[in-house]
């Protein structure tokens, strides 16, 4: 479980996050949604500590992350995995070396055990025959999957994904969403995903935080989202006419 309370963050004069509080549950896919530029990435980066918040507190299972020193944070980070918007694979390393990197850095496993874990993770994200390829030689969807494999190789307790399916076709997007959802449920981890993709919201939105211009506007789950009476959220959700139709069908039923 991750809890954030009263988070503020600004860059110079510009206030990007204003008083955001939320609980992200374990074993669920927690979504942060909002328009482009609403502050999703800044919020996610603040939660993991890549950005320092100006005010507010962040708790990882009751451990106060905001007051930790660098050493304690580094320790805690070994329990985190993160998938970045562009994948952020190390382009000088092969697929297999990318996934093994966290193990080489932090685990005491023998190299046979490491190999087993790498193979397990590759299998988990349905990748085969790409072990020796470099990131530049595989497709964007595959890069995302490799990034997911790398993020879960140390059996994290917390998984963060910044727009895991941006730039992917709808079919692959759904596969990636399902993959992250499955991993979250199977491993009982706390997952936070940034997205502005309504398909993802309807597929895997167990617990949703909607932010608009850096302010929290709404929270709920995918069942509640279509019947919302929050205007800003309505604008966001029904920008795609398809969902208007789904809602109207539901009402008529």
């Amino acid at each position: 479980m991750i809890k954030i309370s009263n988070i503020y963050k600004s860059f110079e004069q510009k206030e990007v996050l204003k008083n955001i509080s939320m609980e992200f549950n374990k074993g669920e896919t927690n979504l942060i949604i909002g328009r482009s530029g609403s502050g999703k990435t800044v919020l996610l980066k603040s939660i993991v500590g890549l950005l320092e918040v100006d005010r507010g507190k962040i708790f990882y299972d009751d451990r106060d992350f905001t007051s930790m020193n660098l050493k304690l944070r580094k320790k805690l980070r070994q329990e985190m995995g993160m998938v970045f918007q562009g994948g952020a694979l190390f382009d000088s390393l092969t697929v297999e070396e990318n996934i093994r990197f966290p193990l080489d850095m932090f685990s005491m496993l023998s190299s046979a055990e490491k190999q087993k874990q790498v193979d397990f993770c590759l299998d988990r994200v349905n990748i085969s025959d790409a072990n020796k390829m470099f990131p530049s030689e595989i497709s964007g969807g595959m890069q995302k999957r490799v990034a997911i494999a790398r993020a879960i190789v140390l059996n994290p307790k917390y998984l963060f994904c910044d727009e895991p399916n941006s730039g992917l076709d709808p079919e692959t997007s759904i596969l990636i969403d399902e993959l992250v959802h499955q991993i979250t449920v199977d491993l009982q981890i706390t997952t936070i995903i940034n997205t502005h993709d309504m398909n993802s919201v309807m597929e895997i939105g167990d617990n949703i935080l909607f932010i608009s211009e850096g302010e929290m506007c709404w929270e709920g789950n995918r069942k509640e989202i279509l019947s919302t009476d929050n205007h800003k959220l309505q604008e966001f959700v029904f920008a795609n006419k398809q969902y208007q139709k789904i809602r109207d069908d539901k009402i008529n039923e």
Partner: peptide, 17 residues
């Protein structure tokens, strides 16, 4: 290039200096 493609952030998140 590692910086702008977030590879450095990736290292930091893993807990690597």
């Amino acid at each position: 290039s590692m910086k702008v493609t977030q590879q450095i952030d990736s290292l930091e998140i893993m807990g690597v200096n």
